[in-house]
């Protein structure tokens, strides 16, 4: 009897992913993102210049509103009880910039791949797609922590902001902000896959933070209904908590309510982010629209 020339293909899939394979994928994406990041030297400008110039427009507006004789500043201090309006604005705008950059970088990491035509090819790799997104987020997180450190230094040197808080508590506040900010970023990335056009969602989300969370003004000037909306946004607690920690010299007991609620928001947003990503990714593959833009 002649042996069959053609061996049957075993019905086993080639897709054997394990923890080690996922870590390799994660690391490969980290290396790729890091190489692209360093390839364009404009990151130096973004890292050094943005922290100074973005708050400037608000600080100068506040300076103009205060007036040459300080007539407006007296009104502001009477209304808010806040003396250092520069530090107040610097912290609010830093949190806003952080969320804004995460939305652009993490959300657009997939969109940019769609535009370059590499998303579909990468998603065919035998790896979990979520690992690909996590790799991009990890590089972004490292660069953002450097960005925040540079901001803190520049605010002190150029705007004369004086930090009265415990550095460890400031760092703790910073860490508890991470899950909410990146959970929102990951959820947003999944919307991009479905909607294709991501700009509108970035504008909408960052506008909500800008309008409701008091980045440049005290929440007390908002109407009641806007204050209620603000209480549902984690960035409100990030900004207020960070101002208390860095400028107000608050202790752990004072910060605990902010830390607790930010951790809760973090868990919720990471869960929402992962669920949205899994749903949208499956839908895009089923409809065959991953490569469409």
């Amino acid at each position: 009897m002649q042996p069959s020339a053609i061996q049957p293909i075993p019905p086993v899939s080639l897709y054997h992913t394990g923890l080690l394979a996922e870590l390799r994928t994660f690391w490969a994406v980290v290396r790729r993102e890091w190489t692209i990041f360093l390839r364009y030297p404009s990151w130096v400008v973004a890292m050094l210049v943005w922290p100074v110039i973005f708050p400037m427009i608000y600080i100068m507006s506040a300076r103009a509103l205060a007036g040459p004789q300080g007539a407006g500043l007296a009104v502001f201090q009477l209304r808010t009880g806040i003396q250092d309006y520069i530090g107040f604005i610097a912290i609010g705008t830093t949190i806003w910039m952080w969320q804004n950059i995460v939305l652009w970088d993490v959300g657009f990491s997939l969109r940019n791949e769609q535009l370059r035509g590499t998303l579909e090819a990468n998603w065919m790799a035998p790896a979990r797609r979520f690992s690909l997104l996590l790799g991009a987020s990890a590089v972004q997180m490292v660069t953002m922590l450097v960005f925040i450190a540079v901001s803190v230094l520049e605010f002190g040197l150029l705007y004369g902001v004086r930090y009265n808080g415990n550095p460890l508590l400031v760092l703790l506040m910073l860490l508890v902000c991470i899950p909410s900010i990146y959970g929102l970023g990951i959820g947003f990335a999944s919307l991009v896959i479905a909607a294709k056009e991501a700009h509108t969602f970035v504008f909408l989300l960052r506008a909500m933070v800008m309008i409701f969370c008091g980045i440049t003004f005290p929440l007390s000037v908002l109407p009641g209904w806007m204050q209620s909306v603000a209480s549902w946004l984690p960035q409100t607690y990030m900004i207020t908590g960070m101002r208390l920690a860095a400028l107000g010299g608050a202790d752990f007991a004072t910060l605990w309510p902010y830390i607790r609620i930010l951790l809760l928001f973090g868990v919720i947003w990471l869960a929402i982010g992962y669920t949205l990503f899994a749903q949208m990714e499956r839908r895009a593959r089923r409809n065959g629209t991953i490569g469409h833009f």
């Binding site: 608000y58 507006s61 506040a62 509103l65 205060a66 407006g72 500043l73 009104v75 502001f76 209304r79 808010t80 800008m210 309008i211 980045i215 440049t216 003004f217 005290p218 000037v221 908002l222």
Partner: peptide, 11 residues
């Protein structure tokens, strides 16, 4: 909108 509310805080 933030400019408006900031203006209110000084007005």
């Amino acid at each position: 909108v933030p400019a408006y509310f900031m203006g209110q805080a000084f007005s």
